[in-house]
Design a protein around this nucleic acid. Structure first.
Lengths: 312, 312
DNA sequence: ACAGATAGTTGACTGAGTCAACTATCTTCG
DNA sequence: CGAAGATAGTTGACTCAGTCAACTATCTGT
């Protein structure tokens, strides 16, 4: 069913237009810095595309960058004359010319790339760590909302715990469960306690933590701890809203199950609350059975706690 | 003393650069729609500026839009020829020409303005109401963080604990002490434990936490807990590198001392490590005395722990 | 085998924008 | 108070980014 949202308010339109003017100036300032080089902005874009996606046919290059074929041809000829690129006829389709950067081309491009990165780094350096996080969250939000072709999004990786993860996971779960369920600080404190205990008592033979990371950002995590020699416990599963629907939650649970089986545990147990509907669906799909339920008041709310077990 | 924030991570720089490329395309698409008119983008920008900020002198107009004076002169002459603007010598300074839109100019500009607004409205129409709010939040965040003409930095405020703070403080201390002193995850776990314990056992009569916040971002914090009926304990003092040198650390310690005195404690105690030089200076300046020292190995390092007391 | 499409090149051109030289006017300084 | 220097705006000459069309070579589909 197609969505039929209300027309946007004038003030919403005006704010986006103001942002567009503001950000056009921002990008213009960054590009001005770049134009201190002997290459035009378009030329640098061509080099960039070849450096990161090359080799490419001229047609593909022009398509990617939205350039007139005749104009591109002249740019490439100049680059070839300067030894920055090689051009060769494709063996498969002799209409096509394959373009690749030479070593000299890469050497020429590197300082331009670094200069561009340095400008952005300088811009970010004026911000504190949490301001940077806010900025990055904001740009991710805009890309996610406005970019129609970003699906399927880049894959995530799973990795182990690093410095800063514990606090970040505590922070994000605190904020998210407050936003989504109205839970108070005591939930965040519980998460902090569990995570701290995991680190302090960590036994790498029997216990593990998986961090889902995408583009350098944590997008989910889960912990498995040794409850008893035969029982493992899955704790603190969470997935960022911006990364939901990609199977990350399922994947994290599957990793736990795989690890628990490999270690010879007989049972994988977990405690959740009934309002965590998405998580519960994952557990049920994985074969967990509800073994206990009890009402309790926690985190400033009346909740129904549930214990689920999976026989391995 | 100048701020010395940590250099941004490469992945942070890369994400901003990717966003810039993405948003340049976004703006380009919007501008392409505009160029279906008989006016160039620059001409429309001139009309826009005159419509919203006119009348203006030609010099001011060129300054605002970053246009070459000769080029602008020609644009204005074309507009005058079409009856879109009036130009008149300023009575105050006869070098200056005052430019204003005529009724015909406004009539010409209106559909261009509406077309531009309609494009943004169409873009927003593809989003749900909450997605629009997220988008608007995100663009406001970017403007607030990157716009150089925002107010000279606001002073910080001190406030009490909110959801998300615990995790954030754990995260930042974990990251900072790893960067600055090479401490491992166990330090972060300790911070998590202490912070969690503070929340779980919080007694608002005898204990307190101060969060230093500036422009919506946490820039420091300290906790005071009840060690015994007569002894208060200061814990987890930290200040963000980007906010150091502003007296925040001293202020947080002073707040602790004031609160401890007000509550009738006799002693304010704290444990630190000798490598935390800036913190130690603050404690000494506040009158704390070193009462115990012991070597220990923690956080992956050989350290010298120190206990300092202040008699109130 | 041929028509139509694609890939790439080159010629001719437009127009956005730059740079310099100029006139008129205002401000500052000796 | 006059002259030098700066500012405002205009015009001439020019560059060059980019567009459009015509062309050759090659590939695909009927």
């Amino acid at each position: 069913m197609s969505r039929m949202p209300t027309p946007p308010a004038d003030h919403q339109v005006d704010r986006i237009r103001r942002f567009n003017r503001f950000y056009t100036r921002q990008i213009g300032l960054l590009n001005e810095g770049l134009l201190d080089s002997e290459y035009s902005l378009t030329e640098v874009r061509v080099l960039y595309e070849l450096a990161y996606r090359g080799p490419l046919t001229a047609a593909a290059l022009g398509q990617d960058l939205g350039l007139d074929a005749g104009y591109l041809s002249r740019i490439l000829r100049r680059f070839e004359g300067r030894g920055l690129i090689d051009r060769s006829r494709s063996a498969e389709d002799r209409r096509q010319v394959l373009v690749s950067l030479t070593d000299a081309g890469r050497t020429t491009f590197q300082p331009l790339d670094r200069a561009s990165a340095a400008q952005v780094a300088a811009m970010l350096s004026g911000l504190s760590a949490s301001e940077r996080e806010s900025l990055l969250q904001a740009v991710s939000t805009i890309e996610r909302l406005l970019d129609p072709i970003r699906k399927p999004e880049e894959p995530y990786i799973l990795r182990s715990l690093q410095v800063g993860d514990i606090g970040w996971i505590v922070h994000r779960q605190g904020v998210l469960y407050a936003q989504e369920y109205g839970w108070d600080e005591s939930f965040e404190a519980l998460v902090a306690e569990i995570a701290a205990a995991f680190v302090k008592a960590y036994d790498p033979i029997w216990e593990r933590c998986w961090i889902a990371e995408r583009e350098g950002e944590v997008v989910g995590s889960v912990f498995l701890v040794r409850h008893s020699p035969e029982v493992a416990k899955l704790r603190l599963l969470y997935v960022e809203p911006s990364a939901r629907g990609l199977g990350i939650g399922r994947r994290l649970v599957d990793e736990c199950i795989g690890f628990a089986k490999a270690k010879g545990y007989r049972t994988l147990t977990l405690w959740t609350n009934d309002v965590l509907v998405s998580a519960r669906r994952i557990y049920q799909a994985a074969g967990f059975r509800l073994v206990k339920e009890e009402a309790h008041r926690s985190f400033g709310k009346d909740l129904v706690g549930q214990t689920w077990d999976l026989t391995l």
